[in-house]
Design a binder for these strands. Structure first.
Lengths: 372, 372
DNA sequence: CAAACGAACGCAATCGATTGTTCACTGCCG
DNA sequence: CGGCAGTGAACAATCGATTGCGTTCGTTTG
């Protein structure tokens, strides 16, 4: 155990910078010049043609327009720095070129990689994405569903997994928007994800191969589908190894750092013993590591620990945390691609499963001496 | 030094899950029922009034409407599940209720906290935010500026700091949208940020107080304004301590984990010696820690290290990394608030400076025996 | 009793773009 | 010289909401 005294982490403030606010500005609200924006009409006038022609030229629907006219229109548009009003277009075309992304919390690396994947891909296709941080709160979710509805989004990506008996609020959007889910859910949308069950099963087998027999499970909430899926993998791994499943070794948590720490602390306090922990998230695993260290247990000698989702953190801690990595950016990217495809009338697979990989690091090093 | 053998981190894949794609779906593109959405007209018809009245009722601009009429309209709207079309409104009102957020990369905790602050606050005021991950690429930035322009955003928040001789692309939006910057910049927008200079200065003084005299600087690129600001703080801290500034101790980097590691590795290879590192980012500091450990140097005994921006990582590594914390969520939140205020014609301060705090942890513990 | 007034609501133009239909030419053929 | 095909471009309706102005009442006032 580390002999360093643990300093109180918070409150160790030193010479806090002061908050200041400069006096109110000389020139406040109105922008310097409020030039009226050019519209098709303006461009048409400058080019000496009708708005119809401007529209056709700028949208390349102009097989039968003379080259001279095209040139004049382009020139006029350039000169006026004309940018079409996307809202007028959306109104007329009844398509907003917008996709909503429901996400529990962008702070989580897992989710912001999804977000990046979605954003990058949406951008590539000319779509904008609206991020909705639900914080797993039903009321926020409801607010966002209304928002997305009013914004007339063309599609919605659901993440964060469903729960038991889920009738997702986004169902209300289904009549209007295309919906794709990332991860396990009980709904009738096309979905994309990984083989969570198989991944956890493989990880458990890895722990067993390292000589571990009493493998605890640091899971999420029983109602979460993702938890159920992974728990099934955990049980399958045990079974395959001839180890009987012991429900008391399953510790529920919210899968956060603090949650993981608390769960393990109370398990230890309850006298539970184990030689490995299979965590369903890296964050929870990190919290668990903290709890183990404070209890004087060494990792991986006394307790091996395996995370899941492979956050950047896992490579930085000591010992480095073994984990399972999923192609998360691709989840977001492919989900977006599917929505775009659906919007273009192309058929899409009902479900896609992407490969996972175990990342074996020091936290699950094999026992030197196998127990009898 | 840690005796563990460093395992190759990548490539240790075990039983990779297979990628599968289920057969194309039975029911593909079109949504089940494509019910026409209700509009003001529909509601008006059902309530037996004109669209004018519907609009007035639903917008509470109805001092002189009878209660009976109001009730009928509300009832009709509810029954039809009417949601106003935000694009029609935006078109008519010439206000999109949308704010753009230019951000280098949402993956960075610093920036996604800004994003959360902006999002939460925007949402509160009925605004939507469009995230723009520029990856510090000028071409992406240009693309996004065009996008924001076409979307007719009401405001834009600039983050990531400017560079020397900056004429930011967003200038092109200034005539149309209100612009607020977070962090140092050379432009004429209102801004919000922290006293970076003072923060680094205080941190250097803390290192000196711990007995350090040869304090290296792990900085960013010389052209970044944020780097210049912080470098000034570094120099001020040295000067105040009577230590002469040594340019060879300043290591430029891209402030990423790998960048920090490489910078320190090459500094050590060049024979540079120091007893402390003042890093301008936590990520770079973590990379530096890695380099130091691999070189067999102990932290904090042989080299103290101080980070900046206080990412969640810093509390998890060993030894825990001292850092400087800024109210980043508030940056995003306040920037949004300022834009909303400007849009409502309220005056806003030209600049706001929020307080920082030093977080002292183990990586900068004082030397037990002060050097002579 | 007529003019005046206010309460309650409707008409129709408007925001900026798209698009089905129509129109004006030009040239060519018979 | 009339008619017809083929170009090239304009007209005007439309998307869904907001809003200035006007209208229709019933009631009050001089």
């Amino acid at each position: 155990m580390n002999p360093h005294v643990r300093e109180p982490d918070e409150g160790a403030a030193e010479s806090p910078g002061e908050a200041t606010t400069s006096p109110l500005p000389p020139a406040p609200a109105e922008p310097a010049v409020l030039t009226a924006r050019p519209t098709v009409k303006t461009v048409a006038a400058l080019a000496g043609v009708s708005t119809t022609t401007v529209s056709r030229v700028l949208n390349y629907k102009a097989d039968l327009l003379s080259d001279a006219t095209k040139a004049r229109v382009f020139e006029a548009a350039r000169e006026l720095n004309y940018k079409p009003n996307s809202m007028a277009i959306a109104l007329r075309k009844k398509v907003s070129q917008t996709i909503g992304l429901m996400i529990p919390d962008i702070s989580n690396p897992y989710f912001h990689q999804i977000a990046r994947g979605a954003e990058d891909t949406a951008m590539k296709h000319g779509y904008t994405v609206i991020f909705c941080n639900t914080d797993r709160s039903a009321s926020k979710e409801l607010t966002y569903v209304d928002l997305l509805d009013e914004k007339r989004v063309d599609g919605v990506i659901l993440t964060g997994g469903g729960v038991d008996g889920d009738t997702h609020l986004a169902d209300r959007l289904h009549e209007q928007a295309r919906v794709v889910a990332i991860g396990p859910h009980r709904l009738s949308y096309p979905s994309i994800g990984a083989d969570d069950r198989g991944a956890i099963q493989a990880a458990v087998l890895h722990l067993v191969a390292g000589g571990r027999r009493r493998i605890a499970c640091l899971g999420g909430q029983p109602g979460w589908l993702i938890h159920q899926e992974r728990l099934a993998g955990y049980r399958a791994g045990l079974e395959e190894s001839g180890i009987t499943y012991d429900e008391s070794l399953v510790m529920p948590s919210d899968l956060s750092i603090d949650g993981g720490q608390q769960a393990v602390e109370s398990a230890l306090r309850a006298g539970l013993s184990f030689d490995a922990i299979m965590s369903f998230s890296d964050y929870a695993a990190l919290g668990a590591m903290r709890a183990l260290k404070e209890a004087g247990l060494t990792i991986p000698d006394q307790v091996a620990i395996m995370g899941c989702d492979d956050s950047p953190l896992s490579q930085m801690v000591e010992p480095a945390l073994s984990s399972i990595t999923f192609p998360v950016w691709e989840f977001g990217s492919l989900a977006t691609q599917m929505i775009v495809d659906m919007l273009n009338g192309r058929p899409v697979p009902a479900s896609q499963v992407l490969p996972y990989q175990l990342r074996i690091r020091q936290s699950t090093a094999a026992l030197r001496v196998l127990p009898s």
